[in-house]
Design a protein around this nucleic acid. Structure first.
Lengths: 164, 164
DNA sequence: AATTAGTACGTTATAATATAACATAATCAC
DNA sequence: GTGATTATGTTATATTATAACGTACTAATT
C-alpha cells in the first residue's frame, strides 16, 4: 500500500515541498502571461505569490495586509484589480463560499476545476474530474441550458483532519 | 415532441402557475416545521414567502426592503436570523456566487441540490442529479475526504434566454 | 527622444453583505 | 403564573467589493 497519501493532490500531502509548488506556479504564470502578451507586473506577481503561500484560500483584505506589511500601501481597488487580472488569466480561482482566492493548479489547460474545502484546516484541493464536469454538462444539456461556468465547492473534512 | 418545455423544472417553464409554487412551498414548510417542532413564526413565514416570489434568488437587503415596505422595519440581524432558520430547516438554499437566497424545491427529502443560474434572466433552477452528486462523492472518497456539503452552481444561459 | 495611445496603478469615497453584543419580548414547559 | 427558552429588537461595526476619477507607467511609432 502506498499509505493514505498515495495519490492525493499536493494540497493534502502534509510533507510536500511547498516551495516547489510556489516556484512552479510562478514560473508557469510568467510563461503563460508572456505567451499571451499579458503583463504580469510586480504587483500582480506579488499578489499571486501571496495567494500561493499556502493551499488555503486568501481573502482580498488579507492580501492587502500582506502588501502593506511589505511596504506598499495599496488600497482595496488595487488588490481587486490584481485579483481580477489573475482570475482572467485563470491563474487563480475565487472560492465563492469563502469569498477568497486560491492558486489554480493547472492554469495552462482549460478546465472547470472542482474544489474540496477542509472546514478544519482550511486547505483547498483542486481536482478536475471529467465524471463531475461531464455529469453537470449532461444535466444542463437535458435542460437546454448553455453552461458558461461551473462552480463546484465541496466542504468537509480532509484526510489529515479526520482520525485514522 | 413535447416542445422545449417538455421536462423542464418549473423555474424554467415560462407559463407555469407560480402562485401554486408559492402555495405548495408554504404549505410544505408549515408541515415540515410542525413535524419537527420548529417555529415558523410570522417573520420567518414572510421571509420565506418573499424568497418564493420568483425563481430568481433574493438578497438579504432586498428582503429587508420588502419587509420595510410591508410596515415592519427590521434591521439586518433580524433578516439574517430568519434566513439562518430557513437554511437550517433546509427550506431555502444560499447561492454563494450571488450572495442570495432561493427556495428549496424539495425540502422534505435530504438532498444536495445543484443550481443552474441564468446570467440573463436571473432564474435559478434546482436539480438533483445523482450522477453529479455521486461523481462528487466518488472523487471525494478517492481523496479520503469526508463530505459535509456540496455546492454546485452552474452559470450560463437558460432555454428561455437563448435564441431557438 | 518626443508623441501618443493604451494600460496599470493611486486615491477618495461609498456600496453591499454580514455579524457581534446586548436588550426586550414572546412562547413553552411545568 | 413562574422560570427557562427562544425569538426578535437595537446599536454598532466588520467584511467584502466597486464606482469614479486622476496620475503614472509602458510600448509603439515617429
Amino acid at each position: 500500500m502506498a499509505g493514505k497519501e498515495g495519490n492525493l493532490p499536493a494540497a493534502m500531502r502534509l510533507g510536500h515541498d511547498h516551495a516547489r509548488c510556489i516556484e512552479e506556479a510562478m514560473t508557469l504564470a510568467a510563461e503563460l502571461c508572456a505567451r499571451r502578451g499579458a503583463r504580469l507586473t510586480e504587483l500582480r506577481r506579488a499578489v499571486l505569490e501571496f495567494v500561493w503561500q499556502s493551499h488555503a484560500p486568501l481573502g482580498a483584505y488579507a492580501i492587502l495586509d500582506m502588501l502593506s506589511a511589505e511596504g506598499r500601501k495599496p488600497m482595496p481597488p488595487t488588490v481587486y484589480r490584481a485579483l481580477d487580472f489573475l482570475l482572467q488569466q485563470k491563474l487563480i480561482h475565487r472560492i465563492a463560499s469563502l469569498n477568497a482566492y486560491i492558486g489554480c493548479i493547472d492554469p495552462g489547460r482549460p478546465h472547470s476545476g472542482q474544489h474540496l474545502i477542509c472546514r478544519l484546516c482550511g486547505t483547498v484541493a483542486e481536482v478536475d474530474e471529467e465524471a463531475i464536469s461531464g455529469a453537470i454538462a449532461a444535466s444542463a444539456r437535458d435542460l437546454q441550458f448553455s453552461v458558461e461556468h461551473q462552480t463546484v465547492e465541496v466542504t468537509g473534512i480532509c484526510v489529515n483532519c479526520v482520525p485514522d
